[in-house]
Simulated scan of single mutants.
Amino acid sequence: MITTKQRAYLRSLANKIDSIFQIGKGGIEAPFIKQVEDALEKRELVKITVLENSGMDPRDAHDHLVGALGCEGVQVIGSKIVLYKESKNNKKIELPGK
């Protein structure tokens, strides 16, 4: 689990990045989860946009991805989701208080 201070730090980093994935009418399936997992290993912090035609609420999509990936949900704001998972091989983000 990350602390409130660490979550705030990750939110500030997420402000500067663009969404690299979109959840559309295909929803969340195994290949999509694998792509997000690979991106988390490479970047540690990813932003995802939930499109209106997905039929999913952004909070539901967030909860599903956090459960499937074992990552930390940093933020759900509007149609955007921010996820964080510490990389095993490509550590880039140093969290405060760690």
Rank of each mutant, 00 (worst) to 15 (best):
11 R>V: 14
77 I>Q: 13
19 S>G: 08
81 I>K: 00
16 K>L: 10
80 K>D: 11
65 L>D: 04
17 I>A: 08
93 I>D: 06
26 G>V: 04
42 K>D: 13
41 E>Q: 01
67 G>M: 08
26 G>A: 04
17 I>K: 11
13 L>G: 03
42 K>M: 13
10 L>E: 13
6 Q>W: 02
11 R>W: 09
86 E>Q: 13
24 G>Q: 05
91 K>M: 13
89 N>M: 14
70 G>P: 02
4 T>Q: 14
15 N>V: 09
88 K>R: 09
76 V>N: 05
92 K>C: 07
73 G>N: 10
40 L>M: 04
1 M>H: 06
29 E>C: 05
21 F>P: 03
84 Y>N: 01
52 E>H: 08
63 D>M: 00
21 F>S: 03
68 A>T: 02
78 G>M: 10
61 A>R: 06
15 N>C: 06
16 K>I: 05
51 L>E: 12
7 R>L: 15
45 L>E: 10
30 A>Y: 07
59 R>E: 11
32 F>Y: 15
15 N>Q: 12
22 Q>G: 11
27 G>P: 15
6 Q>F: 01
55 G>Q: 03
97 G>E: 13
87 S>C: 02
38 D>N: 05
22 Q>R: 11
63 D>Q: 04
41 E>K: 00
48 I>M: 03
33 I>L: 05
51 L>A: 08
67 G>W: 12
79 S>Y: 11
52 E>Q: 10
73 G>L: 07
45 L>V: 05
39 A>L: 06
67 G>K: 15
7 R>I: 15
34 K>H: 12
1 M>D: 07
84 Y>R: 00
66 V>C: 00
84 Y>F: 12
12 S>D: 14
44 E>S: 00
23 I>T: 08
23 I>K: 04
7 R>N: 15
52 E>P: 10
37 E>D: 08
28 I>L: 07
26 G>P: 03
48 I>L: 06
74 V>S: 02
11 R>H: 08
86 E>F: 02
71 C>W: 02
71 C>G: 02
34 K>A: 13
58 P>T: 04
85 K>C: 00
12 S>Q: 14
36 V>M: 01
22 Q>N: 11
46 V>G: 03
41 E>G: 01
64 H>D: 08
43 R>I: 04
54 S>V: 06
6 Q>C: 04
8 A>F: 08
38 D>S: 05
15 N>K: 12
20 I>F: 06
94 E>A: 03
47 K>P: 07
21 F>T: 04
78 G>V: 02
5 K>H: 14
12 S>F: 14
41 E>S: 00
91 K>V: 15
88 K>N: 06
88 K>A: 09
72 E>P: 00
42 K>A: 12
27 G>S: 15
33 I>R: 00
31 P>L: 14
31 P>N: 14
58 P>N: 02
47 K>R: 12
38 D>I: 01
56 M>C: 02
23 I>Q: 08
4 T>F: 13
86 E>C: 06
21 F>W: 12
15 N>I: 09
72 E>Q: 03
61 A>I: 06
88 K>G: 11
68 A>Q: 09
96 P>G: 00
12 S>G: 14
21 F>E: 05
60 D>Q: 13
13 L>M: 10
93 I>Y: 03
26 G>E: 07
2 I>P: 10
64 H>K: 09
4 T>R: 15
